[in-house]
Design a protein around this nucleic acid. Structure first.
Lengths: 242, 242
DNA sequence: TAAACAAATTGGATTTACCAATATTTTCAA
DNA sequence: TTGAAAATATTGGTAAATCCAATTTGTTTA
């Protein structure tokens, strides 16, 4: 990592100064020559760092005037989303996706679903098989908006460290249950039964939510347990008609 | 526009060369010195342009080796999503969101919902009131993953020209119906009735889907009408239990 | 033939210099 | 005294030359 070019470290240092509040949005950065001196690098290096910050939309350069700090508009990835929220959302969306897919899924997609079940039983990379299973169903809805939403959920799961560790502890200890539930979903889709598919998907995620709660409760103290119970109520699927 | 710094125009010219296929992903760009000569600018300017392209993740710089073109991963994931797909997806997700929100929505949020109804009745910027209405409900789910999904749907609607025109013709001619349906959803939420909220939301979008079909059918020829009917079946909400 | 060395290539960084746009100060006239 | 115009200083924009370090390539040598 130390082979990174020099200007990247300057970018980091300037970003730190901005984030620390030393240069709030709207304020002007010191002139390039001063920055070069204080960072003990040459002016071209400072310029490169400023250009990088400009491309990153953190600063704005006004010729002859100076470099100004922009309002940091956070990317939408800044949502703080817990494993519970994510699982509940997946239950709702993928439940409906399964119900939809039951009427639109092709034979070829059913075959591919079956393949993921085999892979999962063998235990070779079961997480990849899991992901493929759910994405095949989303694709089978013939609705790209739903596919997009489910894909975003997976992106979230793969990118959020906290979600990843939460799932890690839960999935590994119940691989056989996961496989069973996938099988139930598959059977419902195979028989083109929308309501059964939705119910099976809900059952799948409901077990996951409860497992998440048990895992988190195991770590929690006695006092917070009551709070957790209230939270469990918030994320339960009891409001569902099925 | 004319005051743009020089290196931005170099960025554009290099991007054009990449997009034209002259420098496909994986290939190496000419050395900085050559680029400087061919673009008739100095080497520092070329370096600045390359740094900008690097920040934009279009190229990768390997010290001592060269500048390599990266696979251009489109951030938009330009899914082609039709107004029908979007509406169906919104129906499913926002239907569940309404059902969830019925048990978690606050008095303050109910008051804000009512405010959007008033604004919509007055006819002052009804589309903004519409958007706010749906986002308040999504927020009231206390689930940021659902809020994120619904926000993405709105982003899609606002950014896709084809979807925008499809909605345009439908919403304007039925403002009073939209207001009525919003009122029904509001009442269900106010009485904390999950199933009624879901049903009202489904009814809202079901009417929208049918209106979209009528609008598209009006433009369609007699021969394609049969196809359209099949499509309508694909996007209907008949698979829903409610 | 293969490993080791040497040279050429290429990007990395600095210094210096000068230009152009902008901001500030000074000057001078009303 | 005041206000506008002009001079000056500041600041970013671009260029050229120079040296360094990493990589690649070609040649030599064991």
């Amino acid at each position: 990592m130390k082979n990174r070019r020099l200007f990247w470290s300057i970018v980091e240092r300037i970003e730190k100064l901005i984030d620390s509040g030393q240069y709030p949005p709207g304020s002007r950065l010191p002139p390039e020559r001063e920055l070069a001196e204080s960072f003990e690098v040459s002016r071209p290096t400072i310029r490169e760092a400023i250009i990088a910050l400009e491309v990153l939309e953190r600063v704005e350069v006004k010729t002859g005037s100076g470099v100004y700090v922009l309002e940091h508009k956070k990317q939408n990835t800044e949502h703080v989303i817990s494993a519970f929220e994510l699982t509940q959302a997946r239950a709702l969306v993928e439940g409906e996706a399964a119900a939809l897919a039951a009427t639109t899924i092709s034979e070829e997609e059913l075959a591919r679903l079956k393949q993921t079940l085999v892979e999962m039983e063998k235990g070779i990379n079961p997480d990849a098989a899991d992901k493929e299973f759910h994405l095949i169903i989303s694709t089978a809805t013939r609705n790209n908006a739903i596919l997009m939403a489910v894909s975003e959920f997976w992106k979230l799961r793969d990118s959020s460290p906290s979600v990843k560790v939460a799932y890690k502890g839960v999935c590994s200890q119940s691989d056989e249950k996961r496989t069973e539930e996938h099988m139930d979903i598959y059977k419902a889709l195979e028989s083109r039964d929308s309501q059964a598919a939705r119910a099976a998907m809900h059952h799948h995620f409901n077990r996951l939510i409860n497992a998440l709660f048990e895992a988190s409760e195991a770590k929690a103290l006695e006092e917070v347990r009551r709070q957790t119970s209230q939270t469990r109520d918030l994320y339960s699927l009891s409001h569902l008609v099925s």
